[in-house]
Design a protein around this nucleic acid. Structure first.
Length: 883
DNA sequence: ATACATACC
DNA sequence: TACTGGTATGTAT
């Protein structure tokens, strides 16, 4: 049984089961001994058997992959190499080193909190969790191989003296709130990953910090408590000569931090921090420690992926900065084990290992092969990793996509008991949903049998549901089906869970108050362009007026503009770099442009020294403004339903350039020449606009790859946008809307799925109810007639009826976008005064989570006893069934 | 849309 | 005795 299983890794145990020692605090352990104990504790258990099975599945996957690999021809590899180089050079040109991203991570968070509050634990190996599962362990325990996600009983075998402390979530949450307050001082838009971890963009803080007086960079040692929570505080500051020692002695071998510039003026000991990044981060960590008596580690790097790796480097209680140079980044990445990269887990690691890839430099060397063996998303990700690329902006925390609750228990085989447990889960879930005012359409039942085999069964309803009865009705049916399928054998369950997803905003209003800002027409997916599309140089952007295209714009960070062509490590030298942008690059949707624009703005913020940005930014702003107005205008007072304006709600007609208050008329106003075009035929109108644009821009018709032509292209874009802006200003749209918010949700999907090629986007001028809307009309690029893709949900709509489509987009906008707009720019939103007040639920519009204070999200799971675990342990469920 | 797998904490 | 719970996302169908 053992042979063949571990063969890939050449170890005598299952790789799935073995100690994961690549995390902090696990260096230099006696791995073999530890693994032996782990195996002995596990062998023969149902869990182990299941792990065996899954291991085999993975091995089969690997075998399949190796077979595939064996069949790859030299030819294919060459071709792949060319493709890979093309993508790589585009990626590399997009490298943005201008941001300063910080990843902060509390050290052994739960364990540290418990140690702080119970000094006796300080010198002992301890872990937080239960005999069944540990959340985390202190560094002392880690020496024995005791770590997070290890069952307590095994940990006990590794370390008989281990003290296991039950989780105390409320406490961790409270501490989390404290540290988040500090985070917010450095980046109000920081993104928490869990209770103890966050990404911060320090760029702006550092800008400001340069001009700060020392007093603003001075922080005092805490007037503090002893380590026991009991006798809190009251100690005068003067009583703290050795302040450092007040922190719990979590780590004997902590890397020491920078020398302290201790002062001890009137108010007690203090420290003045400098203006550099390192000092700023050190200051933040200092403040965390003073405030919570807990230490944090941090990584500083030009992007999120690297920052995360860096935060691990000098953990615990340390920090590491990766300089923002291409060389430093590439050096860093060179020796980096792939497993260290967030997103590459056990399985990916094993597959890569099978290909001889263990470090990121290998990744780069094998990209052509990888591109043939892995999905596009996967190898693109690998490629970014190998180039040391990652997100340079921190995405706003998105709304949750699902909510679930699940519970593990002793074997449960009786149907009635299963049903009543199911009901309980639904009750809990409904309660949670109520807290967040959610309604979802998809209910998923999760079952795990005593052999640890997991099954999920889902059903999507036509309407969103939220109540216990509604959810249970579905879950019960799903469960019933499973029971029936198994009968006459019973289901022998060890876990049940209920999940709800496909949320719909809970107020079921008429989704009609908003009109549309942009529409898309599907193009052919351009697989070769997906990455390039996101990373084009501004100078590579072009404005085609070919066919019906009137304007498109991609707006990658401008920093690239000044960068030298970067060498792709694995590219073959003989090839030129003409690639990257051929004429086939994808056109971008409104949302995509808005996203790109934001990237650019962010980059521009910190790189004003680079020439040419002002232009770029202003161009983009003007576009953005148009879009903003469009959104906003449609947001207020627009009550017309799709049926009110069968077509014009989607593509509303503009009666005049200045009035903006007129109703739909027989003519449309050209945004370029401002003349009325006497037609209602949108194709005619578009042709007119195209004509105008091409006249005003000189030669907009040419896409180019050469840098020398880029300015021309930009001019074209800018000119086009300027007229649009002028036109827009005349429309007296009062309220601007932040279009960034509109695309936020779409950022990741775009990134990951690649850009579609939207061949034709035509700007239309539109006049809705008193307001102006800029819209892009879907045009048929073929003869089959228009196909509509919703710009919000990006699903192709199975209709060619504008009214129907319009209605759909309204719905989507309402559900996914409007509340965000409300949250972000609430002060600028006038609540609909009258009948519409119901259409936008302002309560719902408000941000659910602010950067400070309580988070309503269910944070940081990583911890066994769930939020509901209180008084309701895993194994005592059954007696409740019969109450 | 559904099911399952992987990943993260 | 005993191997979590919550969320997101990718892959395959």
């Amino acid at each position: 049984m053992e042979n063949g299983i571990a063969s890939t890794k050449g170890e005598g145990f299952l790789s799935r089961m073995a100690l994961n020692d690549n995390k902090a605090g696990m260096e230099g352990l006696d791995r073999d001994k530890i693994n032996k104990i782990i195996m002995e504790s596990s062998k023969g258990s149902r869990f182990y058997e299941n792990e065996l099975k899954r291991e085999q599945q993975v091995n089969q996957r690997i075998e399949k992959m190796m077979l595939q690999k064996a069949q790859i021809t030299e030819q294919q590899l060459k071709k792949a190499q060319a493709q890979v180089e093309k993508v790589a050079s585009a990626l590399v040109r997009s490298r943005d080193l201008s941001r300063v991203i910080v990843h902060v991570d509390m050290d052994a968070f739960y364990a540290a909190v418990e140690m702080r509050d119970c000094p006796e634990l300080k010198d002992k190996p301890m872990a937080v969790g239960s005999m069944s599962m540990l959340s985390t362990s202190n560094y002392h325990a880690r020496k024995y191989g005791v770590r997070a996600a290890m069952p307590g009983f095994i940990a006990k075998k590794l370390c008989p003296n281990l003290v296991i402390v039950p989780t105390n979530f409320d406490k961790y949450r409270a501490v989390s709130d404290e540290i988040r307050e500090i985070f917010a001082d450095y980046d109000p838009h920081f993104q928490p990953l869990s209770l103890d971890e966050a990404y911060l963009d320090f760029t702006d803080h550092l800008d400001h910090r340069q001009s700060w007086p020392e007093s603003s960079r001075t922080h005092h040692f805490r007037a503090s408590s002893t380590a026991t929570g009991e006798e809190q505080s009251e100690l005068p500051q003067e009583a703290l000569p050795e302040v450092k020692d007040l922190s719990p002695v979590l780590f004997e071998d902590s890397p020491s931090t920078s020398p302290c510039l201790l002062g001890s003026g009137g108010g007690g000991a203090f420290e003045v921090f400098g203006t550099s990044v390192e000092e700023a981060v050190r200051e933040m960590r200092f403040r965390i420690e003073q405030k919570t008596m807990l230490t944090a580690s941090a990584g500083i790097a030009p992007n999120m992926m690297l920052a995360k790796v860096c935060s691990d480097k000098n953990k615990p209680n340390g920090q590491y900065r990766l300089p923002s140079t291409r060389e430093a980044v590439m050096d860093f990445v060179h020796g980096l084990p792939v497993r260290k990269v967030s997103g590459i887990g056990k399985v990916s690691e094993k597959m890569l290992n099978a290909l001889g890839i263990s470090s990121c430099s290998h990744l780069g060397q094998q990209m052509a092969l990888l591109s043939l063996l892995f999905s596009e998303t996967a190898w693109h990700h690998f490629m970014e990793v190998s180039l040391g690329l990652g997100s340079t902006y921190i995405p706003r925390h998105e709304d949750r996509k699902s909510m679930s609750t699940e519970r593990t228990f002793k074997e449960l085989s009786k149907a009635e008991e299963q049903f009543s447990l199911c009901r309980e889960l639904c009750e809990d879930l409904a309660e949670d949903m109520k807290k967040e005012d959610l309604k979802g359409k998809t209910v998923t039942l999760k079952l795990k049998n005593v052999n640890f085999e997991v099954k999920t069964r889902a059903l999507t309803l036509l309407c969103a549901v939220a109540t216990v009865d509604e959810i249970f009705a579905v879950a019960k049916d799903l469960l019933k089906t499973e029971i029936e399928n198994e009968s006459p054998q019973p289901l022998r369950l060890r876990l049940m869970g209920v999940r709800i997803s496909a949320f719909v905003s809970s107020d079921d209003k008429k989704p009609l108050q908003r009109s549309i800002i942009g529409f898309l027409q599907p193009g052919k997916t351009d697989s070769s362009g997906s990455i390039q599309g996101m990373h084009q140089n501004p100078e590579k952007e072009h404005l085609t007026n070919h066919s019906l295209q009137t304007w498109t714009l991609t707006c990658p960070p401008p920093v690239q503009k000044c960068q030298k062509q970067e060498e792709v490590p694995w590219r073959s030298k003989q090839k030129g770099l003409e690639g990257g942008q051929t004429g086939e690059e994808p056109k971008q949707s409104f949302f995509q442009r808005a996203h790109a624009k934001r990237l650019q703005l962010q980059a521009a913020r910190s790189s004003t020294q680079e020439e040419g940005h002002g232009e770029n930014v202003s161009v983009i702003n003007s576009i953005d403004s148009d879009a903003q107005k469009g959104v906003e205008s449609s947001s207020k007072g627009h009550k017309s339903t799709a049926s009110d304006l069968p077509e014009n709600d989607f593509v509303e007609a503009q009666a005049s350039t200045s009035g903006c208050g007129g109703t739909a008329s027989e003519s449309l106003t050209c945004p370029v020449c401002f003349r009325q075009v006497e037609t209602t035929d949108l194709n005619v109108f578009n042709r007119h606009i195209d004509q105008c644009l091409s006249e005003s821009s000189g030669k907009p018709n040419r896409s180019t790859d050469s840098d020398s032509e880029s300015d021309l292209d930009l001019d074209i874009v800018r000119n086009g946008c300027k007229v649009l802006e002028k036109w827009r200003e005349e429309c007296e749209v009062k309220e601007a809307k932040n279009s960034e918010e509109l695309e936020t949700n779409r950022v990741d999907p775009q990134w990951q799925h690649g850009l579609k090629n939207y061949p034709t986007q035509t700007v239309l001028l539109i006049n809705g109810d008193k307001e102006t809307v800029t819209s892009q009309q879907p045009q048929s690029c073929n003869d089959k007639g228009p196909v509509f893709i919703c710009p919000v949900c990006q699903l192709t709509q199975d209709t060619d009826d504008l009214t129907v489509f319009n209605h759909h987009v309204d719905l989507c906008l309402n559900q996914e976008v409007l509340h965000e707009l409300g949250g972000q720019t609430s002060s600028r939103i006038n609540p609909p005064p009258d009948t519409n007040s119901k259409a936008i639920d302002r309560g719902h519009l408000l941000p659910k989570q602010t950067s400070k204070g309580k988070s309503k999200r269910k944070d940081s799971p990583s911890s066994p006893p769930s939020k509901r675990a209180k008084g309701f342990g895993p194994h005592n469920t059954i007696d409740r069934f019969f109450r």
